[in-house]
Nucleic acid binder design. Structure first.
Lengths: 356, 356
DNA sequence: CGGCATGAGTAAATCGATTTATCGAGCTTG
DNA sequence: CAAGCTCGATAAATCGATTTACTCATGCCG
């Protein structure tokens, strides 16, 4: 009668112990599968658990151990398909290992990124999967190092001398894009990139440039850099294409290094009345569901989201379980999805002038 | 010398107490802003906190109270813009109240939904924001009721006799769509809907039908229902339009009740070489960034994501703080974004009057 | 038979904070 | 001067589980 748990209070391990006529320690042993418990007692404990609907309180359970059964994930945003899928996959993997995933979005702010990390440190997470806003040199990664946290960096990152990194092989994918475009005869190509100092984005550009020039040294590559916001980018593109007005030789193909860039480029084409691939070819880094239904469908580099998530978690759990050795920098291959937006250069046969 | 925290161990409240020459209880009081502490001691405590870089362990701090400072959020998926934005906003709001948001995705499975809920119950979350897979009658909502959990239901939900609900006013938005289409002269309209028993989706259909028939009783409305998967839906649409082959009077407008439906409809148009709005008009429930850059831009109903999140959190915190009273069912108005995909019926350039 | 290993179980310490009950000092009041 | 009160501070209980250290049998062996 001393313990009544039928009201609001959830049953605790002591309620189970009382009902089974054993001590709390024994209950704990049964539930954690320690062998040194009499059959009879184990049965009584399990009966009591069943009857009371007892479930371990993960918070209390984690109290005693230095690292809790929680994995933190930090992504720049939840809104994109890429990070949405990423978080989903990370969540599954964490659960499979008996961990709870706590995800947070840095909203493209390094300050916030560090704050979140500090909070996760407060939570004594066992490990963190960090997709940094900029690159591996940000304050967040620094914080993780300074506090001896266990973590893995993904996506906008190439390698690090403390943490394992996993990302898409941007350079290789870009080289393949170069092969496709140059191979079809394009010699004037516009690359739309992010102004951010992300190592990955730089790799996308360099990979493309190197491969294109190797295939055809006379290839002329223009680069327009912009922030990720729609409006400034739109303005810069307008200026860029405006400058070609009247002159004959504008680019015959555009390679956008990031998703929103592809979106804005496409809408600029529409504004000018240009059609792919007749007037100009378009290919983008990063795929999205809508790209199949635009007219025409847009060719794209598909990032191996799932494989990145899987390798990141594998590396993280290895470190959590004490794996030593130098940090590994892993690159996952992308898939190039050619669609109707890419064709041979427009001006090859007849002069093609879009009106601006 | 007894306590050394400089190694790996984070400083605990006792380390702070030692350094400040007071007891742990006093430190706790200072940090929680209780007034009955001497100035001098408070200063010493704060100095020690500063010097040691002490931060409260939220897990330990939450141990004693029945409800922890955690809010759970469950959404069907992370990949869509809608739920991505939703989680982002919920996260901000939770943080503003000093709570941590733990988000999980049910991946459109009611079984998983219930599992997640059980886990959150284990975590003794203070409250849950649940966007159910189907509607308010699922096993998850039932579980919440059975366990006396505090929660708010959002999105695919109209009202509930236990929990507050917040969702977009689908019916009103659909009525407005009807006004736009019927007003432009459309009398044969195809509605593409989900087969799921979601109250909201039903409301979208009913709202549209009622309004359309009220405006023009001779309006003919066809309905194609499908699951959310792309392929079956594509097949059903192919069949539907195929049946009109040769016959003259196929629908002049399509209203899709969900985002992926809009996507598939558009790609079916493309396959048939139909162009919006000349050959057929298209408008969809739910907006996405890509809809501005398709050719033409697609008209859409914009859901008030942020407002839904805000009202949901407000209601939730009110309940957490003990607000009584009957559950409220709140509907947030949508915004209709007319774009180029909607025009007068094909072959009816002049008259906005129906044929009667 | 004494000594030692082994098996089964439990009391109590522990994790890091919060909260309750208590205590001592200083001050007022009858 | 004793009783009563206030203020500030603290020891100890508490939250719910895990783990350590210890007890008590029992069994085996020399």
């Amino acid at each position: 009668m001393a313990h009544r748990q039928d009201q609001q209070r959830r049953p605790s391990i002591h309620d189970v112990a009382d009902r089974a006529g054993v001590s709390a320690a024994t209950v704990s042993k049964v539930l954690s599968g320690v062998a040194t418990v009499k059959q009879e007692n184990a049965r009584r404990v399990l009966d009591a658990v069943e009857h009371l609907g007892y479930r371990v309180d993960p918070l209390a359970s984690d109290m005693r151990r230095a690292r809790r059964r929680i994995i933190g994930a930090i992504v720049p945003e939840f809104e994109s398909e890429f990070f949405g899928q990423m978080v989903t996959r990370l969540e599954s993997l964490a659960e499979e290992h008996g961990y709870t995933l706590v995800a947070a979005s840095s909203r493209e702010s390094e300050a916030r990124e560090k704050e979140i990390l500090a909070r996760m440190h407060d939570w004594r997470v066992a490990g963190v999967v960090l997709a940094p806003v900029r690159n591996e040199q940000g304050p967040a990664a620094w914080f993780m190092k300074a506090n001896g946290m266990t973590g893995v960096l993904i996506d906008r990152v190439l390698s690090d001398e403390v943490f394992d990194t996993v990302s898409a092989d941007s350079a290789a994918a870009s080289a393949e894009v170069a092969r496709e475009l140059v191979g079809r005869g394009h010699r004037r190509i516009l690359v739309v990139g992010l102004g951010v100092e992300a190592a990955t984005v730089r790799a996308r550009l360099d990979g493309f440039r190197t491969a294109a020039l190797a295939l055809a040294p006379d290839t002329r590559i223009d680069v327009v850099l912009a922030e990720s916001d729609v409006e400034p980018l739109r303005a810069r593109l307008r200026d860029y294409f405006g400058a070609w007005e009247g002159k004959g030789e504008r680019p015959t193909a555009v390679y956008s290094l990031f998703l929103r860039g592809t979106l804005v480029v496409l809408s600029e084409f529409r504004r000018r009345g240009w059609h792919c691939p007749d007037d100009i070819s378009l290919i983008g880094f990063d795929d999205a569901e809508w790209m199949q239904v635009t007219w025409p469908a847009i060719a794209a580099v598909v990032q191996p989201v799932n494989r990145i998530a899987e390798h990141a978690m594998a590396a993280l759990f290895a470190r959590i379980e004490g794996a030593q050795g130098p940090p590994a920098a892993r690159l996952q291959p992308c898939r190039l999805l050619m669609r109707d937006s890419v064709g041979p250069p427009a001006g090859n046969t007849a002069a093609h002038e879009g009106r601006g």
